[in-house]
C-alpha cells in the first residue's frame, strides 16, 4: 500500500550537513554587519590623527591643543581651530530642538488624540513624507525659501544677513528636518499611554485638554524624550542641507543668529576639492570630533532621560 520508501539516509546526511553549514554561514554576514561600526571608528580615527603627526605632515602638522581650543578656521593658511565650531554646532542644534520639540509634541497630540482616523492618518502620512525628504532637497529649499524668509525677518529686526545665509536659517532647516523624527516617536509614545488613566482623569472632571497635558503627556514623556534624543542626534550629524545655508564663518563662537555660522558637518563638506593632503585629512579629524560630540551628547541626554523617567 505505501509508497516506495525514500532513500532517506543519504538525504538526511546532506540535509544535516547543510543545516550545519547554514548555522556557520549565517554567522559570517552577521559578524560582517556588526564589524562596520568598528571599521568606522578604527579607520576614521587613523586618518583623523594624521594631521597632528609631524611624521606625516612635517612643519604643516597641526598643534592638537590649538586644534581643540582654537577660535578660527581657515583652509588657507591652514589655521584649524575646532573649539568654536563645536560650540556653534551645539548652539544651533539646541535652538533647532527648542523650535522643533513643541511643534512636534503638539502635532503628535493632534494626530494621536485629537482627530478622527482619516484625518489623523492623512497627517501622519504628511509627517512620514516630510521625514523621507532627502537632505539635499531641504538644502535647495533652504537656500531658495528659508534664507529669503530669514532675510526678511532680519530686516524687521533692523539686522542684515549675508543674503539670508545665517545661523537662523540653519536652525530653521534643522528644526524642519528633526520635526518628523520627534513627532513620529512622540505619536508612538502617546498612543502607548494607558487609556484607563485618561478615562480616570476625564471621570474626575478634567477637560480633554487638561487630561492631555496633565496625564497623557506626563505619562508619555519618557518616550517623547527618546524621540528628542534621536532628533538631536540627527541634527548633529545632518550635513548637506546645513552646509548650504550655514555660511562659512571663519571665527567664533558667534551667538548672533543673523550672522553666518559654521558647524562640524558644514566644515567637513565645504570647500572640498581635494582628496589628498592636510585639508582633506583634517576633515577626518572633524569627523572624529563629530562622533565624540554625538556620543557624549547622547550619553548626557540619556542620563537626563533616566532622571526624568524616575519621577513619572
Amino acid at each position: 500500500m505505501k509508497f516506495p520508501i525514500f532513500k532517506i539516509w543519504d538525504v538526511k546526511k546532506k540535509n544535516r550537513f547543510f543545516d550545519k553549514l547554514t548555522y556557520t554561514g549565517l554567522l559570517i554576514p552577521t559578524i560582517l554587519s556588526a564589524s562596520f561600526v568598528v571599521l568606522i571608528i578604527l579607520f576614521i580615527t587613523e586618518r583623523g590623527v594624521a594631521p597632528f603627526l609631524p611624521s606625516q605632515y612635517g612643519d604643516l602638522s597641526v598643534n592638537f591643543l590649538r586644534f581643540m581650543t582654537g577660535t578660527t578656521w581657515y583652509i588657507s593658511p591652514n589655521i584649524y581651530g575646532i573649539f568654536f565650531i563645536v560650540i556653534n554646532t551645539l548652539y544651533v542644534v539646541f535652538l533647532s530642538a527648542l523650535l522643533a520639540v513643541p511643534v512636534s509634541v503638539f502635532t503628535a497630540l493632534f494626530i494621536a488624540k485629537m482627530t478622527p482616523k482619516p484625518i489623523s492618518g492623512f497627517f501622519q502620512t504628511v509627517v512620514e513624507l516630510l521625514a523621507a525628504i532627502p537632505s539635499i532637497v531641504f538644502g535647495v529649499f533652504g537656500l531658495g525659501v528659508i534664507t529669503d524668509v530669514v532675510k526678511k525677518i532680519a530686516t524687521v529686526f533692523g539686522m542684515q544677513t549675508a543674503g539670508g545665509i545665517s545661523a537662523l536659517s540653519t536652525v530653521l532647516v534643522l528644526a524642519i528636518m528633526i520635526m518628523p523624527t520627534v513627532t513620529l516617536l512622540s505619536i508612538t509614545a502617546i498612543k502607548a499611554v494607558n487609556r484607563d488613566m485618561e478615562n480616570n482623569s476625564l471621570a474626575l472632571g478634567a477637560t480633554k485638554i487638561q487630561t492631555l497635558f496633565k496625564v497623557t503627556l506626563v505619562s508619555a514623556k519618557s518616550g517623547i524624550f527618546a524621540g528628542i534624543i534621536l532628533g538631536i542626534g540627527r541634527a548633529l550629524g545632518e550635513a548637506t542641507a546645513v552646509s548650504m545655508v550655514a555660511g562659512n564663518a571663519g571665527t567664533g563662537p558667534d551667538f548672533n543668529i543673523f550672522n553666518t555660522t559654521r558647524t562640524l558637518t558644514s566644515t567637513m563638506l565645504l570647500g572640498l576639492k581635494e582628496t589628498t593632503g592636510l585639508d582633506y585629512d583634517i576633515r577626518f579629524s572633524v569627523g572624529v570630533v563629530l562622533i565624540i560630540v554625538i556620543i557624549v551628547t547622547n550619553l548626557l541626554l540619556n542620563a537626563a532621560k533616566k532622571r526624568i523617567g524616575k519621577f513619572s
Binding site: 562596520f36 568606522i40 586618518r47 540627527r234 550629524g237 545632518e238 563638506l269 569627523g287 563629530l290 554625538i294
Partner: peptide, 9 residues
C-alpha cells in the same frame, strides 16, 4: 551614525 561619517568610511 550620520551619513557623512559613512562617507568618511
Amino acid at each position: 551614525v550620520p551619513s557623512i561619517i559613512f562617507g568618511l568610511l
